[in-house]
Design a protein around this nucleic acid. Structure first.
Lengths: 233, 233
DNA sequence: TGACAAATCAAACATCTGTTTGAAACTGGC
DNA sequence: GCCAGTTTCAAACAGATGTTTGATTTGTCA
């Protein structure tokens, strides 16, 4: 059943077909999603037998889970989300975050696999979403909220930070989630994936303008309403 | 095969089960998507025989197509996208557009069916997307671009109008496409569908602040480049 | 009522799916 | 060269799915 290696006799055809399965599966899952991907298709592309997936990974879900984890890891390694960079201005930190995020989900260098798989996972979650949120999405979320706090001021209510963060992320993910519609609406426009810098520039400008407004608004309101204020929800 | 009625003898059980199938199918398609919906499940909920779908609609795809068209029609009837309303200020027109759009895709009154089905259709298009774009999405897109033009000025390049429009729509659809992640990230926050007004208010404020910035930016740039120039509202 | 077409139904069909199985091929160490 | 353990393979299995079929019921009109 499950392969058990001798401590010192590990044939490498094992690792080879295992890797072939992983990359073939990443392509297939990105193209058609977990439920509509067939093990037969994956194995055909990996030039492996139908039984290979079950032999190497146990079952289809486990294979998917590994693919998801690897894609996420690769995307984050290739485009790190600008971990706390105190030397940058808050504005520049947000711009960096936006650029990295866009690249992760749209970069043709990764065949946009990560973004496509994530989009499917959000619209139609499998059991793998919980782990993904825990290990990958939440850290990014915390990072973004932190940037928001430096931009909007430490007194900003968490609900406002969340709303603004979602406004930023929503703009980014739109290009990932709605590509079929965008292509049909504006067929004459160049593909979004080839204009990542342009998109990042726009989203950064748009968001920072809005946030600067929010800041003045919020501080004005706080000053007017209450002497001191801390946390709600 | 296809039912052919006598010109004047239309049994109404026909229309009844047809309607039952349509509403049951809308629920199922919204819950699990086209490909993962089973005819047996739909028929069970509609208290009809397995063969009913093929008898009344031809096949599963045709049923789906009709469901999609009806959901779209209902959502648009119930929450019209504020057709050109010259008595409103441009700002107010945008706010109205945002509110309608949010209600269409998230309103619990419609069980959020429309939004869920649309989200699936975008991430994993079936043959029905082309018609949907042609008949439903493109008109809304034109309407939004028009609002953008009045907000940013008639000289604004189309690419800028598009980018800003997508920034607005992206913010809205985020709550529709990423709900599973939002719930996991902020389980303590109330469900988005119960805060439609709050969301609309935020997105409107955020977007208008950004757009006002874009406008001054653009006019400043144009003023610098060109000799004569008028109006910017 | 009786006949006729529309509508429903249970059952079967053909196909595709993930998974299992038991044998064959391969590998490295003796 | 042989053997134990690992890996591959073709074939089969069990279940689900969309669709078809042929009989049966239902409703309507003459």
């Amino acid at each position: 059943m499950a392969p058990r290696h001798h401590p010192e006799a590990v044939p490498e055809s094992h690792a080879a077909t295992r890797q072939a399965l992983l990359t073939a599966a990443a392509d297939v899952f990105a193209e058609v999603g977990f439920r509509n991907a067939t093990i037969r298709d994956i194995c055909r592309r990996a030039k492996a037998n139908v039984a290979a997936v079950n032999y190497h990974f146990g079952d289809k879900a486990a294979l998917y889970s590994e693919v998801l984890a690897e894609q996420s890891r690769v995307a984050r390694e290739r485009f790190p989300a600008a971990l706390a960079a105190p030397e940058l201005s808050p504005d520049e930190q947000l711009r960096t975050f936006i650029r990295s995020f866009l690249q992760r989900v749209l970069s043709p260098e990764l065949h946009a696999r990560h973004g496509r798989i994530m989009a499917r996972e959000m619209v139609d979650p499998t059991g793998a979403l919980d782990r993904l949120v825990r290990e990958a999405i939440r850290p990014d979320s915390e990072r973004l909220l932190e940037i928001m706090r430096t931009l909007l001021g430490p007194e900003t209510p968490p609900a406002t930070l969340r709303l603004c963060g979602m406004s930023v992320v929503g703009q980014i993910l739109f290009y990932c989630h709605c590509q079929p519609v965008i292509q049909r609406l504006f067929p004459e426009a160049p593909a979004d994936a080839s204009r990542l810098d342009e998109l990042a520039e726009h989203i950064g400008r748009f968001s920072l303008a809005a946030l600067h407004h929010y800041r003045t608004d919020a501080t004005a309101k706080v000053r007017a309403n209450r002497p001191a204020r801390r946390r709600s929800t």
